[in-house]
Amino acid sequence: MRSFCRSAPCARKSFRLGIVRAQGALLHVLLLACLVFASATHAQAIEPMPFANHAQEVRFQQLTAQLRCPMCQNETLADSNAPIARDLRNQIFQLMQHGQSDEQIKQYLVARYSDYVLYDPPLKLGTMLLWFGPLLILLGGAGVVLMAIRKRSRAGTTAGMPSDSTPTDNGDDW
């Protein structure tokens, strides 16, 4: 929207508006630069591979994004630039060309690098605590809350009694 100013305050306001607009533009440029550089480094990490078709490429990207690089620990095989990640990506590509399913490829890697390579850990005896630990903590928290509520309600009924003449603790800690 464009308006013409005839008064000083209005001119000042439109000047400030101009600054805000300039800042906005600068922000846009910065964000764009971030985006460009981010995609540039991403492209460096992943060398082009001779995929048979687009579907295979998508499948490859999805599979490698679910697998953890054993060397660089908090990166996926898709993101990592470590030599071992490159080798494993090549290996996965080769296995795909040989018609192996995602599950078979995962098994291949687990047999060599243990469950560690899976970002989604399987449910088994050793991972019970991992899967159900949060539930245990939630139940424990619920227990504490229940106990506190019971105590409060008991304290509340006794505090109202006239026989209890000590005013020091009405059960309200806060």
Binding site: P70, M71, P83, I84, D87, L88, Q91, R112, Y113, S114
Partner: peptide, 12 residues
Amino acid sequence: PGQTAIDFGVYG
């Protein structure tokens, strides 16, 4: 090539 090392689970 480092191919056999993958079978050994070598990562570094």
